[in-house]
């Protein structure tokens, strides 16, 4: 009996930090935001409960347009990151020799550890009117005056793909790494063309990696703040910026909380849909290192 008591005690001891962390820092705060989003401000210190803040959101086109815009740019960024990242991951996992593989992988990871702010700053120096690319274009005679390459959607997309593509490559490399080349050989020997082998063998095999990469990429894109604001300028119309503005500039916490709930519902909805459509689950994709 004594040893089971001891094991019960360790279970409780190990469970306590987990419970404190998840309840106090994750669950209750989220409930708090949900509660605040349902509180309507009537006057100073006068509140009512209802869906008024949500109605306000749908009544004001600029708000839901911003959310839609955030959504489709994030989807676009995710797709681009997948198409750009897949060949790179394939090269690292399947083509590069053992030695250069580790080095290439590390090279992919180094920008990962540099703050978003530094990367965005680098893009600004490259792309702005007095920046390097504008200067190079003038020097090469391709343009007669300074060219402003910042503050448009293409720049925002390029900059965002840059910040998230590494999160696509890492899970792809670890999945593709586990794939035996014999699978490919078997496919070819059975008469499959390159395309068939790719479609019927490689993609199904890489699916957990693809899903994991897409989820992380999409979350990071939809939740990003610095890149769209610094590269997109004042008119970037990004949803996290609206949240920040409601909280900090307008001090309207109720509507900021409403926006927060909407962003969370929306991103979790997309993640859930992605997992559902591909038959994966969260624990097996995101948590798989």
């Amino acid at each position: 009996m004594k040893s089971s008591d001891a094991s019960r005690l360790t279970l409780i001891l190990l469970f306590t930090p987990f419970a404190l962390w998840i309840i106090l820092l994750v669950i209750l705060p989220q409930i708090g935001v949900g509660w605040l989003s349902l509180r309507e401000k009537l006057g100073p210190r006068e509140y009512a409960f209802g869906f008024g803040n949500y109605l306000d959101f749908f009544r004001e086109p600029i708000y839901w347009n911003t959310l839609l815009r955030t959504a489709w740019i994030s989807v676009l960024v995710t797709i681009l990151a997948l198409f750009i990242g897949f060949p790179v991951a394939w090269y690292i996992a399947k083509i590069a020799r053992q030695r250069s593989r580790a080095a290439l992988f590390l090279m992919c990871l180094i920008p990962l550890w540099v703050s978003d702010l530094v990367r965005a700053f680098g893009w600004i120096l490259l792309l702005r009117e007095t920046g390097i690319i504008s200067g190079a274009l003038q020097w090469a005679g391709l343009s007669s005056g300074p060219v402003e390459l910042l503050y448009n959607d293409i720049t925002v997309v390029i900059g965002m793909v840059y910040t998230v593509v590494l999160f696509m490559i890492v899970p792809l490399v670890s999945t593709l790494d586990g794939m035996d080349n014999a699978l490919l050989e078997a496919g070819y020997n059975l008469g499959g063309s390159r395309l068939t082998v790719f479609r019927r063998i490689v993609i199904p095999y890489a699916m957990p990696g693809i899903v994991a990469g897409c989820i992380i990429t999409f979350m990071l894109a939809a939740g990003s703040y610095l890149t769209p604001i610094l590269l997109g300028g004042k008119n970037s119309m990004w949803f996290t910026e609206q949240i920040y503005e409601q909280f900090v500039t307008r001090y309207n916490w109720e509507s900021g909380a409403t926006f927060g709930v909407l962003l969370l519902v929306f991103t979790s909805g997309v993640v859930w849909l992605g997992l559902r459509l591909t038959g994966q689950n969260l624990a097996s994709t995101v948590a798989k290192e």
Partner: peptide, 28 residues
């Protein structure tokens, strides 16, 4: 297994939302 998924969830909540939720909760 449900608690394990719950443990992973913070990774897929946008950082801005984690920020406002802590702000809101502690202010409450």
């Amino acid at each position: 297994s449900a608690l394990y998924v719950l443990m992973i969830v913070p990774l897929v909540i946008p950082g801005v939302i984690l920020g406002i939720s802590i702000l809101v909760f502690s202010s409450m």
